[in-house]
Structures are given as structure tokens and as C-alpha cells.
Amino acid sequence: MIELSNVAYAYEGDFTALRDITLKIGAGESVALLGSNGCGKSTLLKIICGVLTADSGHYRFNGDEISKKTLADASFSKAFHRKVGFVFQNSETQLFCATVADEIAFGPRQMGLSDAQVAERVADCLELLGLNGFECRAPHRLSGGEKKKTAIAAVLAMNPDVLVLDEPMNGLDPRTERWLAGFLKDLTNAGKTVITSTHDLELVREISARAALFDENHTLAADGETATVLADVELLRRVNLVDKFYHKHGTGDHTHFHTHN
């Protein structure tokens, strides 16, 4: 479904964000991009959803080349954007309608669905994301967690094949985090491809079967089963994702500053 080969990207041609990234993601997979701040996770997600295009290398989606040239074709670009939904790290940036209901209805209306179909999707998404009762609220009046849910609902209403989430757990309280982890798992079980970037090593096991680990040189340091990648503590230290206090207790990982005596 998603094939990235030797992809590289630098902001303004000077600030390297990605070097030589090769990654294949199949339909229905759940993949987490792991790495320290500034390693290029968000840039890769933006390339995957077509907000940015690679400086070099190739990106193919369902066999179609995704490049500046192909995205310049309005029909191709819109069909592609419909298939790949993107939830920004800061949900506030993607909410621009007057009410939560309008926000969710924006995509389906763009797709030319009938009013009844739009209403059905809005009602289903409100129900699915636990936003019932919020439909007439202005998005900027919502809490951080509710904004995140609204942003996800607005993207899901277009029924994308791939859902890309940039740091979805950022700014959420533990309860909403747990809820979102469960929800992403449900989406994967329903056949959606879910790609997330995260630092949360606890939740990543739950939301993704596969993990791709970036190092600080903006290259891919590891790609494999989440449990296997997370078990290599030395590698996690080398890429600066954990410190020397990180360790395991049974099946759980945690970090603290005291010793076990």
C-alpha cells in the first residue's frame, strides 16, 4: 500500500529532516514511528499524507507515484487525500468550522454525499468518538481532548483507508489516552491502516503491532515487531529515546530516579 524508497527531505534545503528512508506499510497494518524530538517522524508523516513531497527518493501509494508532479493534478490529489487522513499534532490547527457538527460534515459534503448520508456520518462519528451533546459547540471552546476527538472525527467522516496521527497522545489526560489507544486498536481491527508517531513507549505496544525507530541522524535505526524493537534497550538508548534509568519489571517498562533496594 505505502512504499517509501530512499526518501530524503530537508527544510529550506538546509535543515535535514530525513535521510534515505525505505519503508513499506501494508493495508491494515498498524505502525508506530518512534524517535526522539526532531528526528523526522512528523516530516515522514507529512510526506505520507502528501503535505510535503520528498526531495529525493520515491513514494508510491497503491502503486501510484506521489510527487509534486502527480499531486499537481487536482483529481489525483483529491482522491489521494480522501484515502489518507491526517490528524495534526496540534488539533486546534485543523478545526476551522463554526460548530463540531459542521467540522465533521465538512469532508462528507466535499465528497458530494447526500444530506441524509452526511447526517448519518455526523451522527455516527459523534457517537463513535463520544462527542454526543457537543455537536453545536464551537471547536475553539472545547478542551484539548475534545478537540483531538473532533479532529479525528472530522477525518474519519471521510472514511480514509489510512489514518495518520502525529503524536496523538500529546496533551491528553491518562483516561483519554487509554480511550484513544483502544479506539486506534478498534480501527486497526476494522481493517484501517493506522500510522502514528509517538514517544509513549507504554502505549505504543497497545496501539501498534509494528514499530519503526528513528535515530538522531534522521535515518531508520530499526523496523520490526513493536515488542522486539522495545526489547532492545541498548538501541533505544543509542537513539536517545530513553535514558540510563529505563528498565523493565516483568512485562512493563518504566523510568525512575531511585534504585530498587
Binding site: C49, K78, R82, F86, Q94, G107, Q110, A154
Partner: peptide
């Protein structure tokens, strides 16, 4: 980011697009 988000969700043709820019 807001304009990019708008572009990603503009997957068809409607007259409400410019209203969204006002949003």
C-alpha cells in the same frame, strides 16, 4: 498548518471552501 489541513480535507468541489478560509 491550518491551510494545509483545509487542503487535505478539500477532496471535492463545494462553494463553502472560501467560507472555510474565513474560518
Amino acid at each position: 498548518q491550518s491551510v494545509q489541513a483545509l487542503k487535505l480535507r478539500c477532496v471535492g468541489r463545494t462553494d463553502r471552501r472560501y467560507g472555510s478560509l474565513a474560518g
